[in-house]
Simulated assay, not measured.
Amino acid sequence: MTLLGERPRAAQHSIDWHRTSGRSAEHSGAERATPAPAALVAISHGTNSADGQAAIAALVEAVTLAHPELAVIGGFVDVQQPDVAASLGAVPPDIAAVVVPLLLSAGYHVHVDLQRETSAHDRVTTVSRALGPDDRLIDVLEHRLRADGFDKRVPGQEIVLAAAGSSDARAVHDCRTVGALLEQRLGVRVTVGFLSAATPRLACAVTAARLRGASVTVSTYLMAPGFFFDLTRAQSVGADRVTAPLLLPGETAPAPLVDLVVDRYLEAKEQAQIF
């Protein structure tokens, strides 16, 4: 099954950490090594769900296949192994690292956990922005909605964007921004409902939308299946449909997400002047 112009799967490429400059020894007197590009260390939250683990792994694999010139290393900020320290430790010591959080908003994990973990390493390391907000996330959300039969032309519809929630106001703001972008894209009222830490809670947002609209769709703003997706379905009583998360096991990761991860890497690399 292809999704949103997915990239075709390709044969696995090995990483050549040091490449010659292209001048022959005859002209230069010796081969000169060119440092490999900074490693892309993709750090997700982590989950006990086998489906969630497979879905995240597919995204990391898709980034690797799309950019074989990069060393792409996966890791986790919680629940799973390898943790951040072990993931950074897997990068050769003479190579810089750019940590890309596979997180939809910038909360405690981005601002505190990853900053602390990366500062403890004796290497050139920087942390990129979280994945959201970004229009490419809206592309995937819209695709999931259409796949579940949502038609924006039908009158009287409402969407509730189901987000994990955070005690960090910056993360909550990020989620609300995504809700506003989705509303602008579809021309349908979108309310953000949170599963924890922030308000309105998803169940309350669904109930309020049901009182206003003839049809309610819950758009799942989560990276992959797991605890929070189970909670989304449990708290969506009264909704007509609940869409799948952005990533699903058995599917190649959507091309917009692959491009977004790489763009976060390139942006952070440039800002940190890592070449």
Rank of each mutant, 00 (worst) to 15 (best):
D168A: 13
V112N: 04
A66P: 09
Q81E: 15
V98A: 06
V84R: 02
V154W: 05
Q115H: 06
P101R: 00
S119V: 15
H109G: 06
T118D: 04
A120T: 10
G165R: 13
D151R: 13
T126S: 02
A169F: 07
D135W: 07
A120V: 06
S105D: 04
A171Q: 06
L65M: 12
K152T: 11
A85Q: 09
D148Y: 00
D139G: 04
G75E: 10
G132C: 01
V63F: 07
L104M: 11
I73D: 00
A90W: 02
L141A: 01
D122S: 11
A62C: 12
D78S: 14
P133A: 00
V63N: 07
L141Q: 06
S119C: 04
L141V: 11
L70K: 08
A106N: 09
V172W: 05
G107K: 10
D122H: 09
I159D: 02
V79Q: 00
I95P: 05
I159R: 01
P92R: 09
H109Y: 06
P82I: 10
A164R: 13
D139F: 03
S166V: 15
R146Q: 14
S105M: 13
R116G: 06
K152P: 12
A164Q: 08
L137D: 08
D148V: 10
H121G: 00
S105W: 02
P155N: 03
A169I: 14
D134G: 07
A169Y: 03
I73G: 01
Q115K: 03
H121M: 10
L104Y: 06
D139P: 09
E69T: 15
D83F: 07
S105R: 08
A163Y: 05
E158S: 13
H67L: 11
